[in-house]
Amino acid sequence: MTDTPDPRRALRDAFGTFMTGVTVVTTLDATGKPLGFTANSFASVSLDPPLLLVQIARASANCGPFTTAPGFAVNILSEGQKDISSTFARPVPDRFAGIDWQPGPQGSPLLPGVSAWFDCTTHQIVEAGDHVILIGRVAAFHATAAPGLGYYRGTYFTPVATQATLPTGPDIIVSAILERLGQVLLVDDGFGGLTLPTARVGRDGTFAALAALIADSGIEAAAGPLYSVYEDVARGQQHIAFRCPATPTGTPRRGAFVDLAPASFTEVTDQALRTMLDRLADESRMGNYGIYFGNQNAGRVTPVAQEKTK
């Protein structure tokens, strides 16, 4: 079992391994009763401060308690905990019956035998249509060597299963939106057009791929907040983009900085990236930014700049 004292490092390292894992999100209601629900995805929002997000349906009976609680925990289930995943996904009277849970450092219930957990204070509540986004600030993190439990297209899987039996999931593509002084870095896409610095995510995880993109650019920049998550169904890819503020000096190894304006993006050949950059140009002028969730054609933008903060 490994304790990581720096939550920023924990968030960066853990998301490389657990980003698509099955989780149980937990909290306590006003009377101290433990509550929880199963979620098969969560996402990093920021490394500094260390923030993550999960979503809960507004129609859920747990929505009210979770949005008013001072914090919540994300328990990443291990490969032998399919029954726990199923229990917390069903409307049973007491989901914690027979579970020897313990309060975390911030008080939220931690489940035994999990691969890892994040214990968070509630940082922000974002209304998002028929869902609510819970943004938590990571206060404590704990991990074990137990393989995590995954879920894809109705099937559970684990990293220790043979490659032939694993379900085929989408490639994960990460993009670095390198910004400075009202400009963004665009590079040659190899097909006569322009694109963002982009790479496939390898075994080392999303933040390792993002760090490599920043290093390869030759520009000093920080891995900033999550900006867009969308699935390209036709190509079988999931795209994740992060805004990365860059220092005002230095020449990129390839490509060039262009003004954050739609006129600068006419040679961006990927329509989804071009739409994202057009949105960034608009939001940059207004100073209000959002996170896009959806696919390459349609989705929703959830504002994060002017929401209530706890």
Rank of each mutant, 00 (worst) to 15 (best):
D3P: 00
D3A: 12
P7C: 06
A10Q: 09
L11I: 12
R12C: 01
D13S: 12
F15W: 15
T27M: 05
D29G: 06
D29K: 09
K33S: 13
L35F: 06
G36A: 07
N40L: 00
N40T: 14
F42W: 14
V45Y: 08
V45K: 01
L47M: 11
D48M: 02
L51F: 07
L53H: 06
V54E: 02
V54Y: 01
I56K: 05
A57F: 05
A57L: 13
A59M: 08
N62G: 06
C63G: 01
C63R: 14
G64D: 13
G64C: 02
G64I: 04
T67E: 13
P70W: 07
G71Y: 10
G71F: 09
N75H: 04
L77P: 09
L77M: 09
S78D: 12
Q81D: 09
D83A: 15
S86F: 01
T87M: 01
F88D: 10
A89P: 03
F96L: 07
D100W: 02
P103C: 08
G104V: 06
G107T: 09
G113A: 05
G113V: 09
S115V: 03
F118V: 05
F118C: 06
A128D: 14
I133A: 05
I133W: 03
L134I: 09
R137K: 14
F141K: 04
G154N: 09
G154T: 10
T155P: 00
F157G: 01
F157H: 12
T158L: 00
T158S: 15
P159R: 12
V160L: 11
T162G: 11
A164T: 12
A164S: 13
L166A: 13
P167M: 07
P167W: 05
T168N: 08
T168Q: 14
A176S: 13
L185M: 04
L186F: 04
V187L: 01
T195G: 03
L196F: 03
L196I: 12
R200F: 04
V201A: 07
G202Y: 09
T206E: 14
F207Q: 14
A209K: 07
A211P: 00
A212P: 00
L213Y: 08
I214L: 14
D216R: 14
G218C: 06
G218S: 07
A221G: 05
A223C: 11
Y230C: 00
A234L: 12
R235A: 15
Q237L: 00
C244G: 01
P245M: 10
P245I: 10
A246I: 07
T247A: 15
G250L: 09
D259F: 01
D259V: 02
S264K: 04
A272K: 05
A272V: 04
M276N: 12
L280C: 01
S284K: 02
I291H: 05
Y292K: 04
F293Q: 12
A298M: 07
G299E: 05
G299I: 06
R300T: 15
T302L: 11
A305W: 03
A305V: 03
Q306N: 13
Q306S: 13
E307A: 14
E307K: 03
K310H: 12
K310G: 09
